[in-house]
Design a protein around this nucleic acid. Structure first.
Length: 423
DNA sequence: TCTGGGGTCCTAGGACCC
DNA sequence: TCTGGGGTCCTAGGACCC
């Protein structure tokens, strides 16, 4: 028997997380903003119904928000990632054959769990359990391939009848489901591909499924050909239970205010370097190259757009913050331009490798051994006493560049001082 | 005034080698 | 007149995802 994929997707995830801890948000239009309170990245169904589009800049949606008293929140990633862990761990109780695909989605293989025919019932049980144990509503789509499961999930969300669970495997309704799905809604078909397909008269998923596979390959590369195969029920994308090794790590931010001095820019880039280095060590990796990038506001009309990057390859891969800081500070000296109003910057680590003894330099390098054990001690203290209990002077105190989060809710599940209190 | 962040994969084309 | 050819590696750019 072949795999049966189930895609479990949390509904309006960030909004749903906020609602668990704030009943006033229930049954009202709610949006959650991106970093820097820039764009709308999550919407409740009520907000969607008002016509607020995904990814729209806040100021462009402001008139709708004012007119309908839409509740607006900054992102609270500490809360969302903790709620994500809770949802995923409940899912893992149902089957070990699970791929954690994103913060709010997981693929399951139910081939060994259920006799087909009772798949929907099993799905409902999962859905009900998740809701009861975490407060998060989810939708589940099932089918023979990941692409079809995604499609089923979309329909499960929209259909009144499905009540959040739709099994399209061996279903006589598959043709109809594909016909109802605009080709641009398919997993892997974005704006450009949709435009291209539309220009060839292909507007729905069924038409795309039935194209000549060689044409798909030629026009949309192997990516397109794979989607066609998946729509035909031939699985090309296996369940990935073990996350593949990371190839790069980035920490970047846009600034709350534009930055014009080298010293402010250095503080920002130093901060990003410290953060990304922490994640590097957490992943037990070392980096062989570091890239720093900066940019001015690309929307500004009164000043030219400037964006550039600088890379340093290291003779010895490293995971210690001081060594990475030394390089990123060199890069930023090169990139800085007086008179530019910088709006964003970032640090990217590349050429990652496992931090095994073989790759971490000779153990007889005394200086290296010492600095590694020092930074590990710092990590342990910060893990126990709170982030930045010990920090590097170079990151500064004022941090005038700081990203905005003006409407952030409490970190109700990860910080004792912000735990929900019932008055 | 105000426009996110963190990733991956694929291909074309140039450099280089024999 | 006729100006090799095939392989590999690297990178930039473009597409996609959530």
């Amino acid at each position: 028997m072949a795999a049966i994929f189930a895609l479990c997707d949390c509904n309006n995830f960030y909004v749903s997380c906020e609602r668990v801890f704030n009943a006033r948000l229930v049954n009202r239009p709610v949006v959650v903003l991106s970093n820097n309170d820039g764009c709308v990245v999550a919407r409740s169904n009520e907000a969607k119904a008002l016509g607020i589009k995904m990814g729209v800049p806040l100021f462009q949606a402001q008139h709708i928000i004012d007119a309908h008293d839409v509740q607006v929140l900054s992102s609270n990633y500490a809360l969302y990632s903790d709620m994500s862990h809770r949802v995923m761990s409940v899912l893992q109780d149902f089957t070990p054959e699970i791929e954690l695909y994103s913060i709010d989605e997981a693929f399951l293989n139910l081939e060994h769990n259920v006799a087909s025919g009772s798949l929907s019932d099993f799905g409902r049980k999962i859905r009900q359990t998740i809701y009861q144990w975490t407060g998060i509503p989810i939708s589940i789509g099932m089918a023979e391939t990941k692409t079809l499961a995604k499609l089923a999930n979309n329909l499960a969300k929209k259909s009144e009848k499905a009540k959040g669970v739709l099994d399209l495997s061996c279903s006589p309704y598959q043709d109809h489901a594909l016909e109802c799905t605009p080709v641009g809604n398919l997993w892997g078909i974005g704006r450009q591909y949709a435009k291209l397909l539309n220009s060839h008269g292909i507007t729905n998923a069924k038409q795309f499924r039935d194209v000549d596979i060689r044409w798909a390959r030629k026009t949309l590369t192997v990516v397109g050909a794979r989607i066609v195969e998946e729509l035909r029920g031939n699985s090309c994308l296996p369940l990935e239970s073990f996350p593949p090794a990371k190839k790069s790590l980035t920490c970047s931010r846009s600034f709350g205010h534009s930055v014009e001095t080298l010293s402010d820019l250095r503080e920002a880039v130093a901060t990003f370097t410290v953060r990304v280095a922490e994640r590097l060590r957490k992943n037990k990796l070392v980096a062989g190259a570091i890239t720093v990038f900066v940019a001015t506001n690309r929307f500004a009309k009164d000043a030219p757009y400037y964006a550039d990057s600088a890379t340093i390859e290291m003779a010895y891969p490293t995971d210690t913050t001081p060594e990475l800081l030394e390089r990123s500070m060199k890069c930023i000296e090169k990139l800085y331009r007086a008179g530019c109003k910088f709006k964003s910057a970032g640090v990217l680590l590349n050429a990652l490798a496992p931090a095994s003894p073989m790759t971490i330099r000779m153990n007889n390098d005394k200086q290296w051994v010492k600095s590694r054990s020092l930074i590990r001690a710092v990590d342990r203290i910060n893990a126990r006493m709170g982030r930045d209990t010990i920090k590097f002077g170079i990151v500064g105190v004022e941090q005038r560049w700081k990203t905005k989060f003006e409407k952030r809710s409490a970190r109700s599940t990860t910080n004792w001082n912000e735990i929900l209190a019932i008055a």
